[in-house]
Design a protein around this nucleic acid. Structure first.
Lengths: 337, 337
DNA sequence: TTGAAAGCGCTAACAC
DNA sequence: GTGTTAGCGCTTTCAA
């Protein structure tokens, strides 16, 4: 009823007053400090309950110098990979009583440093996921972001823990799988140029070329979305490739769909591989051969690294590399010719 | 309190000292207050730059009584619907300088109230998305959560803005679409029982039954995941239904995949519909007929409601209902018999 | 225009 | 064991 009058939320002072004790005692009770008389504790508790007291987290944070919150910066919340990673971090952090603040840079690399800084100011640490900013900018930013954990990106600074995926090896495994099936003409639909993981794939393919000089491999510009894959059908067909390495599962699904519309059989006429093994990859028609990245685990690990940093940070910062696992499914088959 | 001079972050005091001015002046400069001498402003700015000063958001929040952060509680971060909603809120809030704290209840309804309360204590408001808790619990929680916006759930309390989807109408549209195609035996694969949106669908189907007494409709227990759909193949076949209404797109995709493995043609032998129109629905084989829910818009609207609440909250709280749009795609076709 | 000082809500060191 | 009190970092009256 009285909207504007009852604006003030009840604070620790009100509880103390009502219980007839000091602020300190209320604080002690609320924090489960044992050195409080059972009688006082009971009085405080009932006073708190009657007033429906909710401790103010901001005041608490200021006094304690910590927020029990970490920030996670991702390039795109619509991307299943980052969603999985976010979920992994969030669940793992929640287990330790930490919350997650998200920041979505919408693939605008100039926003990243601002968002990361903002997040850091409100949180105890930041997880920077696949930043698109260049190396110089990243290095300049590092000090002010600590404690910082880097995912899908590494840096010269060895103090910053990083979790990366060996995309180069993964794409080589996929290419090798296609070669094994008899494919000799391949195409790679590349992803966003600024993405470090795309660079890693390209390097892997360079190595693959050296190891397999007899295989013809064309690199096509693509993207990271369904639309990119769907719109690449013509380009792919032009190369005459019978095996296509899509940047990721999304692109592969888009391509699959485009080929299906054209009446081109997969894997009968063309074999397709994805990357990431997002949950959907298992449920396409045909199911997608891909390189599985344990993205939830990576998120969980990212939290563990952060937790270490937040604690005494005894050990050395770790730099973990995850190896993608080849998943042979229906979208790849023997070469027709 | 012993101050650890070593790793203390630079605060406003340091800047003031370095610039030879008072705290108040630094604060004024940092907040773009115009009533400051240009000379002082310059001194402050350079001092801040030299010290690489980053204002502490917690201190600021405490003084201002606001955090510029809102909490979003979802039942499952792995669910594309909630991901889309989260993304919508996040992007819209970011436009207004607000951040989002996420809380994932992992479908544990008993966790929801705790998470929501926690979020509220750290934030200026909470968006509660598809809460699984019962009505009594929800109503009891409302007061302590305000400002609160409810998504995919309504309540008797009219003060709380809510954004809901007319799932009942959506599922009727889908059923009608199947009937139009000549299907007379239908099955509904229902979702989580505690989900309000599942109840809404069931009610819609009740109405459908009344309007279409000649149609046979079986309700099967299912779930909300691929696996639920994939595992329901036998049950679906047993009903003899030629048209299947899956709880959502995920379930539909699982079912699609399961039927494909059995060599059953969709839509030749069985027609399937999803719900939500997640991005993937357009790229399955065949593409999924579904009822499109503008989930990103809903997230955006949720933020707008919240913004209104955070402001003076002049207008009446709004209770918006979104109508799903039927998307006819390849997974439905004429009945075979 | 500027500075001194009083909080914002809570914790913890220090006395009693 | 319990209360008093000094901060945590910042904003904002209120005087000067």
């Amino acid at each position: 009823m009285a909207r504007k009058t009852a604006n003030r939320r009840v604070g620790i002072t009100d509880v103390a007053q009502r219980a007839g004790v000091s602020l300190a005692s209320v604080s002690r009770v609320m924090n489960g400090n044992f050195s409080v008389d059972a009688d006082i504790a009971a009085r405080v508790r009932s006073a708190a309950a009657e007033l429906n007291y909710q401790p103010n987290a901001v005041g608490r944070s200021l006094a304690l110098g910590k927020t029990d919150t970490i920030g996670v910066v991702v390039p795109d919340l619509a991307n299943p990979t980052f969603q999985g990673m976010l979920r992994g971090v969030s669940r793992a952090a929640a287990q330790d009583g930490y919350r997650v603040l998200i920041a979505d840079s919408s693939e605008v690399s100039s926003e990243e440093s601002i968002l990361a800084g903002e997040a850091r100011r409100r949180c105890d640490g930041v997880v920077l996921c696949a930043p698109r900013m260049n190396e110089a900018e990243l290095e300049a930013l590092l000090p002010s972001l600590r404690p910082l954990v880097l995912v899908n990106r590494s840096t010269a600074d060895t103090e910053t823990p990083s979790l990366v995926v060996d995309y180069g090896q993964g794409v080589q495994d996929l290419a090798a799988h296609l070669v094994e099936l008899g494919h000799t003409t391949l195409a790679f639909l590349e992803g966003p140029e600024r993405s470090a993981s795309n660079q890693a794939r390209l390097q892997g393919l360079e190595k693959f070329r050296v190891d397999n000089p007899e295989i013809q491999l064309t690199v096509l510009s693509g993207g990271s979305s369904f639309e990119a894959g769907h719109g690449s059908v013509d380009n792919v067909l032009e190369t005459g490739a019978t095996g296509v390495l899509a940047f990721n599962d999304l692109v592969a699904m888009g391509l699959l769909s485009g080929l299906h519309e054209r009446g081109i059989d997969v894997p009968g006429e063309i074999s397709i591989t994805g990357f990431d093994d997002i949950p959907f990859a298992n449920y396409t028609t045909p199911p997608l051969t891909t390189a599985a990245v344990p993205i939830n685990d990576i998120g969980e690990q990212a939290w563990h690294e952060m937790r270490r940093l937040l604690g005494d940070g005894g050990d050395e910062p770790s730099h973990t590399t995850f190896q993608p696992q080849l998943r042979r499914r229906g979208s790849t088959g023997p070469a027709a010719r």
